[in-house]
């Protein structure tokens, strides 16, 4: 492995949904990378393609969605064209996943212990006792009180926040190097959200795990991520260090997005608003997808699609730079 090779490299990824009226392009030519131990936030409105990107990386794209172009490399090795069985082995061992609804990740019929032990034994050669002890340590480390008593409980016996902790334990069970976390806190109450974010951050730092954090919540990104990619209509609008994107956004969309978040302590009568709504996949305009809503739109935006290029401390796809 080269010294400064990224852990994950996505090149020109394109995801399509063929339907009877034509082909919808849900993710259009996006490239991004995640370094070892780094937390990359992927933020965007619903339908921006952020969850699909995550799903494509772990190989769980639901048909009829398909990868129509580009490549996904883990440690320089292509993983987007692997047969199902090989991808299944990578998923779990090298890439873990945390979803919005913890119930979809846990089998309601099995005890927590069985699910953890099975996952551990599938990917390592631990004995049953070793695996069980490891499971216990995991539950302890994700902050489940009285872990030894809760190990043999069923998922429904846990509260929502505790369940999400179990899912995190499950995702961390075999020390993956990358975790795809898709809206991990959206279904949780605010006070639990903060706990889960703190936990995720601490564990990743301890284990050196890289995280791709997919969310619509800029607050979560600001607290957790090192870098952030802002997606709009299937494309990356801006990507850069989280601090630069939050405070010094260059893309008019990112800029408007930041202004539209009400902030406690700064009283404003009127929030900055971006008029209109993100276009449906069937109605993406030519040129820059943001052009109908952009306050700084000019001729070139209507005709040509901008590529990501450096501007200030971030990379922006906007003809202004």
């Amino acid at each position: 492995m080269a010294a400064n090779q990224p852990l994950l490299q996505v090149n020109n990824l394109r995801i399509e949904f063929p339907n009877r009226r034509g082909t919808l392009v849900a993710v259009d030519d996006i490239s991004l990378h995640i370094d070892p131990g780094e937390v990359l936030g992927v933020v965007g409105e619903s339908g921006a393609g952020k969850s699909l990107t995550g799903a494509a990386i772990i190989g769980l794209l639901e048909p009829p969605g398909r990868i129509a172009g580009g490549e996904i490399l883990l440690d320089g090795r292509r993983i987007d064209n692997l047969p199902y069985e090989q991808m299944r082995r990578i998923r779990g061992k090298e890439i873990g996943a945390i979803f919005q609804d913890p119930l979809t990740s846990l089998n309601p019929l099995y005890k927590i212990s069985r699910q953890l032990v099975e996952t551990i034994q599938t990917h390592t050669d631990m004995s049953a006792t070793q695996a069980r002890n490891h499971a216990l340590d995991l539950l302890d480390s994700v902050g489940i009180p009285a872990a030894s008593e809760r190990l043999d409980a069923y998922p429904h016996e846990f509260s929502g926040g505790m369940r999400q902790r179990v899912v995190i334990a499950l995702a961390l069970a075999v020390n993956p190097r990358l975790i795809i976390a898709d809206e991990p806190t959206t279904a949780l109450d605010v006070s639990i959200q903060a706990q889960i974010i703190g936990l995720l951050r601490r564990l990743c730092r301890d284990h050196g795990t890289a995280v791709m954090l997919v969310t619509h919540d800029m607050g979560v990104i600001a607290e957790t991520a090192d870098r952030v990619a802002v997606m709009y209509a299937g494309r990356i609008a801006e990507v850069g260090p989280v601090e630069a994107v939050v405070k010094d956004a260059r893309h008019p969309y990112t800029h408007g997005l930041m202004g539209s978040i009400p902030a406690v302590g700064h009283h404003v009568e009127r929030l900055t608003q971006i008029d209109g709504a993100m276009p449906r996949l069937t109605e993406i305009p030519p040129g820059c997808a943001f052009n109908p809503r952009c306050p700084k739109v000019f001729d070139k935006c209507l005709a040509e699609r901008p590529d990501l290029r450096p501007a200030g401390r971030t990379d922006v796809s906007c003809w202004l730079y």
Binding site: A194, G198, M218, G219, V220, A222, E223, K247, A263
Partner: peptide, 12 residues
């Protein structure tokens, strides 16, 4: 619990 966009990566 309110995320503060002014303080990036605040440890809470």
């Amino acid at each position: 619990t309110i995320p503060d966009l002014d303080v990036i990566g605040r440890h809470r």
